[in-house]
Design a protein around this nucleic acid. Structure first.
Lengths: 204, 204
DNA sequence: CTATAGATAGACCGAGTGGTCTATAGTCAA
DNA sequence: TTGACTATAGACCACTCGGTCTATCTATAG
């Protein structure tokens, strides 16, 4: 039984025809899978992308290929965002991390926020052999390595564990923010993040 | 496309016939929805429960009713587990919390661990009006209230925020443990948990 | 011009979905 | 025994899903 109408084809913003079918499909898959979940139908994606059914299978081989490649693209964009945020913090690794988390803190406040798209996809895709799982795991590992690198540069005594701690705070805050945003988990996470960062005493 | 065979009706353990159909359905739904995800078919649940189709609709009105009631039961069991773990810690609220987290830490090590069943269900059930969402949110709020109560009793300066912090560490560790257990997030979370607890200075 | 490749439109398919229905068997109280 | 209730077995239905297929259109290269 469906309790609410999820797909509203009326208000669906069609991708500009200037892009090719491939780009339009990736964009539509990104929007729809995040908003409605990974179980949106192929038809809904095709309608939103304003693309012929055949083009999807020509370019991506199927729905799984499309969402996997879409997640890979999202991964690239996300990591670029992180790199930029770190760079904005200057040279001190602790300041770079603070700059990163200042950016991360704002993300859940965006309208339509539904949690980390990678965690959501990972938990939603029931089949453990779905190729997207590898993409997701690789992305999370790169993010952890990024954090670990900064912590090591900052002189943290246990950068590997601290990297997991920061990762865990990010994913935990995202999960809580998605279902109970009124608890303001990002604000609650801040002091813990600061603690982990400040444990990295420079040249200690 | 299915990359791996998920449902293995051969090895499915049938519930003992001593219980009534209602209990068998709840038990089968619990096992299957956690192992295979919330999208297991009604047929698979019926087969595992060894129950007639009609009994499901007689007792629960449909699949949604079944999984909602199953989550409510799981919520009860979980909260009882937490209450027992707290009680095992004695009278000092900080020791009670340490006792609780000692129990929580071991959970991801269990074979077949797939993350928090409530978070998973929350993310998997695409329809935001599904009745299970209310059950899940209520469960998480009770858990947070439980943590907050202990923190308040321990004299924590900001028990509300600290409660969110502990909740966030739990959910974050569960999410990471589900997809990258080798990172041992529970162990990484421990020092942060201890920090939050130790901030509650008795009668400070 | 034609030839080729890419895109569109949409019918179509098999499989699987949740849910309804009829018929039958067992169980326990009056 | 009868009657009411519950459970079982399984056919059946409308619908949705991802995916394939044919036919047509369009744009660009030669």
């Amino acid at each position: 039984m469906v309790y609410s109408q999820i797909v509203d084809t009326t208000n669906t913003t069609k991708a500009p025809r200037s892009e090719g079918p491939r780009e339009r499909l990736l964009r539509a898959a990104d929007e729809l899978t995040y908003r409605e979940g990974m179980h949106v139908g192929v038809d809904a994606i095709l309608t939103a992308a304003d693309v012929a059914r055949r083009s999807l299978y020509q370019h991506f081989g199927g729905k799984d290929g499309l969402v996997t490649e879409m997640l890979a693209k999202t991964s690239e964009r996300t990591e670029q965002l992180y790199a930029d945020a770190l760079a904005a913090g200057g040279d001190d690794p602790r300041e770079r991390l603070r700059s990163l988390f200042a950016v991360l803190e704002k993300i859940p406040d965006a309208p339509g926020y539904r949690g980390c798209p990678f965690v959501n996809a990972d938990l939603t895709l029931a089949d453990p052999a779905h190729p997207a799982h590898d993409v997701i795991r690789a992305h999370k590992r790169r993010l952890r390595a990024l954090l670990e690198g900064e912590l090591r540069a900052a002189g943290h005594p246990d950068p590997a564990m601290a990297g997991v701690q920061l990762q865990l705070l990010i994913d935990g805050a995202a999960a809580v923010a998605a279902s109970r945003p009124d608890e303001r988990p990002a604000a609650a996470a801040r002091p813990l993040v600061e603690l982990v960062i400040s444990q990295a005493t420079p040249a200690g």
